[in-house]
Write a protein that binds this DNA or RNA. Structure first.
Lengths: 195, 195
DNA sequence: GATTAATGAATGACCATTCATTCATGATTT
DNA sequence: AAATCATGAATGAATGGTCATTCATTAATC
Protein backbone atom coordinates (compact mmCIF):
# COMPACT_ATOMS: atom_id res chain seq x y z
CA UNK A 1 0.00 0.00 0.00
CA UNK A 2 0.85 3.67 -0.24
CA UNK A 3 2.03 3.76 -3.82
CA UNK A 4 4.35 6.67 -4.31
CA UNK A 5 3.81 7.52 -7.95
CA UNK A 6 1.16 8.89 -10.24
CA UNK A 7 -0.60 12.10 -10.97
CA UNK A 8 -2.42 12.32 -7.65
CA UNK A 9 0.76 11.65 -5.72
CA UNK A 10 2.33 14.70 -7.33
CA UNK A 11 -0.85 16.72 -6.90
CA UNK A 12 -0.89 16.00 -3.19
CA UNK A 13 2.78 16.93 -2.77
CA UNK A 14 2.32 20.19 -4.62
CA UNK A 15 -0.81 20.95 -2.65
CA UNK A 16 1.06 20.29 0.58
CA UNK A 17 3.81 22.75 -0.36
CA UNK A 18 1.22 25.40 -1.14
CA UNK A 19 -0.89 24.82 1.95
CA UNK A 20 2.07 24.69 4.34
CA UNK A 21 3.68 27.78 2.80
CA UNK A 22 0.48 29.79 2.94
CA UNK A 23 -1.12 28.67 6.16
CA UNK A 24 1.84 27.40 8.15
CA UNK A 25 2.63 23.94 9.34
CA UNK A 26 0.19 24.15 12.21
CA UNK A 27 -2.77 24.85 9.98
CA UNK A 28 -1.82 22.33 7.36
CA UNK A 29 -4.49 19.78 8.24
CA UNK A 30 -4.68 16.71 6.08
CA UNK A 31 -8.17 17.69 5.01
CA UNK A 32 -6.92 21.10 3.88
CA UNK A 33 -4.18 19.52 1.80
CA UNK A 34 -6.77 17.14 0.36
CA UNK A 35 -9.07 20.01 -0.56
CA UNK A 36 -6.21 21.94 -2.20
CA UNK A 37 -5.22 18.82 -4.18
CA UNK A 38 -8.88 18.32 -5.18
CA UNK A 39 -8.90 14.89 -3.65
CA UNK A 40 -10.84 13.24 -0.85
CA UNK A 41 -9.32 13.06 2.62
CA UNK A 42 -9.05 9.30 2.46
CA UNK A 43 -7.26 9.38 -0.87
CA UNK A 44 -4.24 10.86 0.86
CA UNK A 45 -3.82 7.55 2.68
CA UNK A 46 -3.72 5.61 -0.56
CA UNK A 47 -0.57 7.47 -1.48
CA UNK A 48 1.05 8.23 1.87
CA UNK A 49 1.50 6.25 5.07
CA UNK A 50 0.50 9.16 7.27
CA UNK A 51 0.91 12.89 7.62
CA UNK A 52 4.62 12.71 8.42
CA UNK A 53 5.12 10.72 5.26
CA UNK A 54 3.69 13.59 3.21
CA UNK A 55 6.28 15.96 4.66
CA UNK A 56 9.17 13.56 4.26
CA UNK A 57 8.20 12.68 0.70
CA UNK A 58 7.73 16.32 -0.19
CA UNK A 59 11.16 17.19 1.08
CA UNK A 60 12.87 14.22 -0.51
CA UNK A 61 11.26 14.75 -3.90
CA UNK A 62 12.04 18.43 -4.14
CA UNK A 63 15.37 18.38 -2.36
CA UNK A 64 16.43 15.43 -4.50
CA UNK A 65 15.84 17.56 -7.58
CA UNK A 66 17.68 20.45 -5.98
CA UNK A 67 20.79 18.39 -5.27
CA UNK A 68 20.81 16.77 -8.68
CA UNK A 69 20.78 20.20 -10.31
CA UNK A 70 23.58 21.45 -8.08
CA UNK A 71 25.68 18.41 -8.85
CA UNK A 72 25.19 18.67 -12.60
CA UNK A 73 26.10 22.33 -12.70
CA UNK A 74 29.11 21.72 -10.49
CA UNK A 75 30.45 19.06 -12.80
CA UNK A 76 30.42 21.51 -15.66
CA UNK A 77 32.68 23.97 -13.85
CA UNK A 78 36.43 23.76 -14.41
CA UNK A 79 38.22 25.36 -11.48
CA UNK A 80 37.53 24.91 -7.79
CA UNK A 81 36.77 28.61 -7.45
CA UNK A 82 34.12 28.24 -10.11
CA UNK A 83 32.67 25.21 -8.39
CA UNK A 84 32.25 27.13 -5.17
CA UNK A 85 30.66 29.88 -7.21
CA UNK A 86 28.29 27.40 -8.78
CA UNK A 87 27.33 25.98 -5.38
CA UNK A 88 26.48 29.42 -4.06
CA UNK A 89 24.68 30.42 -7.22
CA UNK A 90 22.60 27.30 -7.65
CA UNK A 91 21.61 27.18 -3.99
CA UNK A 92 20.36 30.75 -4.04
CA UNK A 93 18.88 30.85 -7.52
CA UNK A 94 16.94 27.63 -7.16
CA UNK A 95 15.33 28.71 -3.91
CA UNK A 96 14.74 32.22 -5.26
CA UNK A 97 12.66 30.61 -7.98
CA UNK A 98 10.49 28.62 -5.61
CA UNK A 99 9.36 30.86 -2.82
CA UNK A 100 6.77 28.48 -1.48
CA UNK A 101 9.24 25.66 -1.19
CA UNK A 102 11.68 28.07 0.44
CA UNK A 103 9.19 28.98 3.12
CA UNK A 104 8.60 25.30 3.76
CA UNK A 105 12.29 24.40 4.04
CA UNK A 106 13.47 27.43 5.98
CA UNK A 107 10.61 27.90 8.38
CA UNK A 108 7.89 25.35 8.37
CA UNK A 109 9.86 22.16 8.19
CA UNK A 110 12.28 23.00 10.99
CA UNK A 111 10.10 21.37 13.51
CA UNK A 112 11.26 18.57 15.59
CA UNK A 113 9.11 15.57 14.97
CA UNK A 114 11.92 13.02 15.15
CA UNK A 115 10.47 10.87 12.40
CA UNK A 116 10.41 13.80 10.01
CA UNK A 117 13.91 14.94 11.00
CA UNK A 118 15.27 11.50 10.34
CA UNK A 119 13.63 11.24 6.93
CA UNK A 120 14.96 14.64 5.97
CA UNK A 121 18.43 14.03 7.37
CA UNK A 122 19.23 11.39 4.79
CA UNK A 123 18.85 13.70 1.82
CA UNK A 124 20.60 16.56 3.55
CA UNK A 125 23.63 14.34 4.01
CA UNK A 126 23.89 13.94 0.26
CA UNK A 127 23.99 17.69 -0.12
CA UNK A 128 26.66 18.00 2.54
CA UNK A 129 28.85 15.45 0.84
CA UNK A 130 28.52 17.28 -2.45
CA UNK A 131 29.88 20.42 -0.78
CA UNK A 132 32.53 18.36 0.99
CA UNK A 133 33.76 16.97 -2.32
CA UNK A 134 34.25 20.43 -3.78
CA UNK A 135 36.14 21.66 -0.75
CA UNK A 136 38.29 18.56 -0.56
CA UNK A 137 39.19 19.04 -4.19
CA UNK A 138 40.22 22.61 -3.40
CA UNK A 139 42.50 21.50 -0.60
CA UNK A 140 44.04 18.66 -2.59
CA UNK A 141 44.61 20.91 -5.59
CA UNK A 142 46.44 23.36 -3.37
CA UNK A 143 44.03 26.16 -4.16
CA UNK A 144 42.79 26.25 -0.59
CA UNK A 145 45.01 26.50 2.46
CA UNK A 146 46.04 22.99 3.44
CA UNK A 147 44.98 23.45 7.05
CA UNK A 148 41.38 23.96 5.95
CA UNK A 149 39.12 21.52 7.75
CA UNK A 150 36.70 20.15 5.16
CA UNK A 151 33.80 19.62 7.52
CA UNK A 152 34.18 23.06 9.06
CA UNK A 153 34.43 24.79 5.69
CA UNK A 154 31.30 22.98 4.59
CA UNK A 155 29.55 24.11 7.73
CA UNK A 156 30.50 27.69 6.90
CA UNK A 157 29.30 27.38 3.30
CA UNK A 158 26.04 25.70 4.14
CA UNK A 159 25.43 27.74 7.28
CA UNK A 160 25.91 31.01 5.47
CA UNK A 161 23.72 30.06 2.52
CA UNK A 162 21.02 28.66 4.75
CA UNK A 163 20.99 31.74 6.93
CA UNK A 164 20.94 33.98 3.85
CA UNK A 165 17.86 32.23 2.55
CA UNK A 166 16.19 32.27 5.96
CA UNK A 167 16.71 36.03 6.26
CA UNK A 168 15.25 36.47 2.78
CA UNK A 169 12.19 34.39 3.61
CA UNK A 170 11.73 36.25 6.89
CA UNK A 171 11.68 39.52 4.99
CA UNK A 172 8.89 38.22 2.73
CA UNK A 173 11.22 37.24 -0.14
CA UNK A 174 11.31 40.87 -1.17
CA UNK A 175 14.93 41.58 -2.06
CA UNK A 176 16.99 39.86 -4.73
CA UNK A 177 18.78 36.75 -3.56
CA UNK A 178 20.99 36.17 -6.56
CA UNK A 179 22.68 39.53 -6.22
CA UNK A 180 24.29 38.16 -3.07
CA UNK A 181 26.14 35.44 -4.96
CA UNK A 182 29.25 37.47 -5.77
CA UNK A 183 29.74 39.01 -2.34
CA UNK A 184 29.27 35.65 -0.65
CA UNK A 185 31.69 33.96 -2.98
CA UNK A 186 34.23 36.68 -2.32
CA UNK A 187 33.77 36.40 1.43
CA UNK A 188 34.26 32.62 1.38
CA UNK A 189 37.43 32.78 -0.63
CA UNK A 190 39.11 35.86 0.83
CA UNK A 191 37.64 36.37 4.28
CA UNK A 192 37.04 39.62 6.07
CA UNK A 193 40.57 40.95 6.50
CA UNK A 194 42.00 43.62 4.20
CA UNK A 195 45.33 42.47 2.88
CA UNK B 1 -2.56 38.26 35.73
CA UNK B 2 0.37 36.08 34.66
CA UNK B 3 3.02 37.50 36.90
CA UNK B 4 6.40 36.78 35.42
CA UNK B 5 8.61 36.60 38.49
CA UNK B 6 9.17 34.43 41.51
CA UNK B 7 10.54 31.06 42.37
CA UNK B 8 7.82 29.06 40.63
CA UNK B 9 8.19 31.13 37.46
CA UNK B 10 11.84 30.10 37.26
CA UNK B 11 11.03 26.52 38.23
CA UNK B 12 8.54 26.26 35.39
CA UNK B 13 10.97 27.70 32.86
CA UNK B 14 13.72 25.32 33.92
CA UNK B 15 11.31 22.42 33.87
CA UNK B 16 10.22 23.39 30.36
CA UNK B 17 13.81 23.38 29.11
CA UNK B 18 14.39 19.96 30.59
CA UNK B 19 11.14 18.45 29.35
CA UNK B 20 11.48 19.83 25.84
CA UNK B 21 15.12 18.80 25.55
CA UNK B 22 14.45 15.29 26.78
CA UNK B 23 11.10 14.46 25.27
CA UNK B 24 10.92 16.79 22.29
CA UNK B 25 8.60 19.63 21.62
CA UNK B 26 5.81 17.31 20.57
CA UNK B 27 5.73 15.52 23.87
CA UNK B 28 6.13 18.61 25.99
CA UNK B 29 2.58 18.71 27.28
CA UNK B 30 1.75 21.38 29.77
CA UNK B 31 0.92 18.74 32.35
CA UNK B 32 4.34 17.16 31.87
CA UNK B 33 6.08 20.49 32.40
CA UNK B 34 3.92 21.03 35.48
CA UNK B 35 4.86 17.66 36.89
CA UNK B 36 8.56 18.27 36.24
CA UNK B 37 8.29 21.66 37.97
CA UNK B 38 6.42 20.04 40.89
CA UNK B 39 3.47 22.32 40.39
CA UNK B 40 -0.17 21.77 39.50
CA UNK B 41 -1.27 22.09 35.88
CA UNK B 42 -3.36 25.15 36.66
CA UNK B 43 -0.47 26.90 38.39
CA UNK B 44 1.24 27.25 35.03
CA UNK B 45 -1.53 29.64 34.02
CA UNK B 46 -0.91 31.87 37.00
CA UNK B 47 2.56 32.60 35.62
CA UNK B 48 2.11 32.28 31.88
CA UNK B 49 -0.59 33.38 29.47
CA UNK B 50 -0.59 30.10 27.63
CA UNK B 51 1.75 27.43 26.34
CA UNK B 52 3.32 29.68 23.70
CA UNK B 53 4.13 32.16 26.40
CA UNK B 54 6.16 29.52 28.22
CA UNK B 55 8.30 28.99 25.14
CA UNK B 56 8.73 32.67 24.41
CA UNK B 57 9.58 33.51 28.00
CA UNK B 58 12.02 30.64 28.20
CA UNK B 59 13.84 31.80 25.11
CA UNK B 60 13.88 35.45 26.10
CA UNK B 61 15.12 34.78 29.62
CA UNK B 62 17.95 32.49 28.61
CA UNK B 63 18.85 34.21 25.37
CA UNK B 64 18.84 37.59 27.15
CA UNK B 65 21.49 36.24 29.52
CA UNK B 66 23.43 34.83 26.60
CA UNK B 67 23.54 38.14 24.76
CA UNK B 68 24.44 40.13 27.86
CA UNK B 69 27.41 37.85 28.46
CA UNK B 70 28.55 38.14 24.85
CA UNK B 71 28.32 41.90 24.98
CA UNK B 72 30.25 42.19 28.23
CA UNK B 73 33.07 39.98 27.01
CA UNK B 74 33.19 41.83 23.71
CA UNK B 75 33.59 45.16 25.43
CA UNK B 76 36.66 43.89 27.21
CA UNK B 77 38.46 43.02 23.98
CA UNK B 78 40.79 45.60 22.42
CA UNK B 79 41.16 44.84 18.73
CA UNK B 80 38.47 43.98 16.22
CA UNK B 81 40.11 40.63 15.55
CA UNK B 82 39.84 39.87 19.25
CA UNK B 83 36.21 40.91 19.31
CA UNK B 84 35.39 38.50 16.52
CA UNK B 85 37.28 35.87 18.45
CA UNK B 86 35.25 36.65 21.55
CA UNK B 87 31.98 36.41 19.63
CA UNK B 88 32.88 33.00 18.29
CA UNK B 89 34.19 31.80 21.62
CA UNK B 90 31.34 33.00 23.77
CA UNK B 91 28.69 31.71 21.38
CA UNK B 92 30.20 28.23 21.34
CA UNK B 93 31.31 27.99 24.95
CA UNK B 94 28.04 29.18 26.40
CA UNK B 95 26.01 26.68 24.42
CA UNK B 96 28.56 23.93 25.07
CA UNK B 97 27.87 24.46 28.78
CA UNK B 98 24.13 24.13 28.46
CA UNK B 99 23.32 21.14 26.34
CA UNK B 100 19.65 21.07 27.19
CA UNK B 101 19.16 24.68 26.18
CA UNK B 102 21.15 23.98 23.02
CA UNK B 103 18.81 21.20 22.03
CA UNK B 104 15.88 23.50 22.62
CA UNK B 105 17.28 26.38 20.55
CA UNK B 106 18.76 24.39 17.70
CA UNK B 107 16.10 21.78 17.21
CA UNK B 108 12.98 22.04 19.25
CA UNK B 109 12.25 25.72 19.02
CA UNK B 110 12.63 25.98 15.24
CA UNK B 111 9.00 25.38 14.75
CA UNK B 112 6.83 27.79 13.03
CA UNK B 113 4.06 28.90 15.31
CA UNK B 114 4.02 32.53 14.19
CA UNK B 115 3.35 33.83 17.68
CA UNK B 116 6.42 32.07 19.02
CA UNK B 117 8.57 33.14 16.08
CA UNK B 118 7.63 36.74 16.60
CA UNK B 119 8.36 36.63 20.32
CA UNK B 120 11.73 35.06 19.66
CA UNK B 121 12.61 37.36 16.76
CA UNK B 122 12.86 40.41 18.98
CA UNK B 123 15.69 39.02 21.09
CA UNK B 124 17.49 37.54 18.12
CA UNK B 125 17.61 40.99 16.56
CA UNK B 126 19.56 42.27 19.54
CA UNK B 127 22.12 39.55 19.00
CA UNK B 128 22.37 40.39 15.32
CA UNK B 129 23.00 44.02 16.02
CA UNK B 130 25.74 43.14 18.48
CA UNK B 131 27.51 41.21 15.72
CA UNK B 132 26.81 44.04 13.27
CA UNK B 133 28.47 46.54 15.58
CA UNK B 134 31.67 44.54 15.74
CA UNK B 135 31.85 44.11 11.99
CA UNK B 136 31.06 47.75 11.33
CA UNK B 137 33.86 48.70 13.67
CA UNK B 138 36.20 46.46 11.69
CA UNK B 139 35.26 48.10 8.42
CA UNK B 140 35.50 51.61 9.80
CA UNK B 141 38.85 50.91 11.43
CA UNK B 142 40.17 49.69 8.08
CA UNK B 143 40.96 46.26 9.46
CA UNK B 144 38.34 44.65 7.22
CA UNK B 145 38.08 45.18 3.49
CA UNK B 146 35.99 48.28 2.88
CA UNK B 147 33.67 46.52 0.45
CA UNK B 148 32.54 44.14 3.21
CA UNK B 149 28.77 44.23 3.52
CA UNK B 150 27.97 44.34 7.21
CA UNK B 151 24.70 42.46 7.02
CA UNK B 152 26.17 39.75 4.84
CA UNK B 153 29.23 39.32 7.04
CA UNK B 154 26.95 39.00 10.04
CA UNK B 155 24.93 36.39 8.20
CA UNK B 156 28.13 34.43 7.60
CA UNK B 157 29.21 34.70 11.23
CA UNK B 158 25.87 33.81 12.70
CA UNK B 159 25.05 31.21 10.04
CA UNK B 160 28.32 29.40 10.55
CA UNK B 161 28.10 29.41 14.34
CA UNK B 162 24.49 28.35 14.30
CA UNK B 163 25.16 25.52 11.91
CA UNK B 164 28.18 24.44 13.94
CA UNK B 165 26.07 24.16 17.05
CA UNK B 166 23.29 22.39 15.20
CA UNK B 167 25.71 19.78 13.88
CA UNK B 168 27.06 19.29 17.40
CA UNK B 169 23.59 18.82 18.83
CA UNK B 170 22.66 16.42 16.04
CA UNK B 171 25.68 14.30 16.91
CA UNK B 172 24.53 14.06 20.54
CA UNK B 173 26.83 16.85 21.79
CA UNK B 174 29.66 14.35 21.78
CA UNK B 175 32.65 16.24 20.38
CA UNK B 176 34.22 19.37 21.79
CA UNK B 177 32.68 22.58 20.54
CA UNK B 178 35.24 25.02 21.88
CA UNK B 179 38.08 23.42 19.95
CA UNK B 180 36.42 24.79 16.82
CA UNK B 181 36.86 28.39 17.91
CA UNK B 182 40.33 28.93 16.44
CA UNK B 183 39.68 27.32 13.06
CA UNK B 184 36.42 29.23 12.67
CA UNK B 185 38.04 32.52 13.60
CA UNK B 186 40.80 31.85 11.09
CA UNK B 187 38.30 30.97 8.37
CA UNK B 188 36.31 34.16 8.95
CA UNK B 189 39.32 36.41 8.79
CA UNK B 190 41.35 34.79 6.03
CA UNK B 191 38.95 32.76 3.93
CA UNK B 192 39.61 29.52 2.12
CA UNK B 193 42.19 30.57 -0.45
CA UNK B 194 45.88 29.90 0.05
CA UNK B 195 47.81 33.09 -0.49
C1' DG C 1 -12.04 36.61 57.78
C1' DA C 2 -10.33 38.32 53.72
C1' DT C 3 -7.23 38.14 50.21
C1' DT C 4 -4.13 35.65 47.39
C1' DA C 5 -1.98 31.38 45.67
C1' DA C 6 -2.39 26.75 44.29
C1' DT C 7 -4.76 22.64 42.97
C1' DG C 8 -6.25 19.01 39.59
C1' DA C 9 -10.35 16.97 37.69
C1' DA C 10 -13.40 18.05 34.01
C1' DT C 11 -14.26 20.14 29.57
C1' DG C 12 -14.34 20.68 24.84
C1' DA C 13 -11.95 21.70 20.64
C1' DC C 14 -9.27 19.84 17.34
C1' DC C 15 -7.77 16.69 13.71
C1' DA C 16 -5.36 12.37 12.02
C1' DT C 17 -6.95 8.24 10.63
C1' DT C 18 -10.34 4.61 9.47
C1' DC C 19 -13.57 2.04 6.83
C1' DA C 20 -18.12 1.03 4.85
C1' DT C 21 -19.64 2.46 0.67
C1' DT C 22 -19.64 4.23 -4.13
C1' DC C 23 -17.77 4.70 -8.62
C1' DA C 24 -15.07 3.65 -12.86
C1' DT C 25 -12.95 0.55 -15.79
C1' DG C 26 -12.14 -3.46 -18.14
C1' DA C 27 -12.60 -8.44 -18.58
C1' DT C 28 -15.65 -12.47 -19.28
C1' DT C 29 -19.63 -14.65 -20.55
C1' DT C 30 -23.84 -15.49 -23.20
C1' DA D 1 -22.92 -6.31 -28.34
C1' DA D 2 -25.29 -6.53 -24.27
C1' DA D 3 -25.17 -8.07 -19.71
C1' DT D 4 -22.68 -9.46 -15.75
C1' DC D 5 -18.89 -9.59 -12.86
C1' DA D 6 -14.35 -8.27 -10.73
C1' DT D 7 -10.96 -5.13 -9.22
C1' DG D 8 -9.21 -1.49 -7.05
C1' DA D 9 -9.34 3.55 -6.79
C1' DA D 10 -11.72 7.16 -4.50
C1' DT D 11 -14.84 9.05 -1.20
C1' DG D 12 -16.04 11.59 3.15
C1' DA D 13 -18.62 11.00 7.37
C1' DA D 14 -17.66 9.09 11.76
C1' DT D 15 -14.40 7.84 15.35
C1' DG D 16 -11.27 8.20 19.00
C1' DG D 17 -7.42 10.00 21.18
C1' DT D 18 -4.92 13.89 22.65
C1' DC D 19 -4.20 18.03 25.22
C1' DA D 20 -4.57 23.04 26.29
C1' DT D 21 -7.29 25.49 29.17
C1' DT D 22 -10.75 26.47 32.77
C1' DC D 23 -12.74 26.96 37.24
C1' DA D 24 -14.84 25.37 41.50
C1' DT D 25 -12.57 24.20 45.53
C1' DT D 26 -8.97 24.18 49.02
C1' DA D 27 -4.87 25.92 51.45
C1' DA D 28 -1.95 29.47 53.03
C1' DT D 29 -0.91 34.05 54.65
C1' DC D 30 -1.64 38.48 56.61
Amino acid sequence: MAKKTGEKYQAIINAAVRVIAQHGYHNAQVSRIAREAKVADGTIYLYFENKDDILISLFNEKMGQFIATCRDLCNKADTVEQKIYVLVHSHLSQLANDKEFSVVTQIELRQSNPVVSKGIGEVLKQYFSLIDDVIREGVEAGVFRDDVDVRLARTMVFGTLDQTVTAWVMRQCKHDLVSQVDPIHNLFLNGLIRK
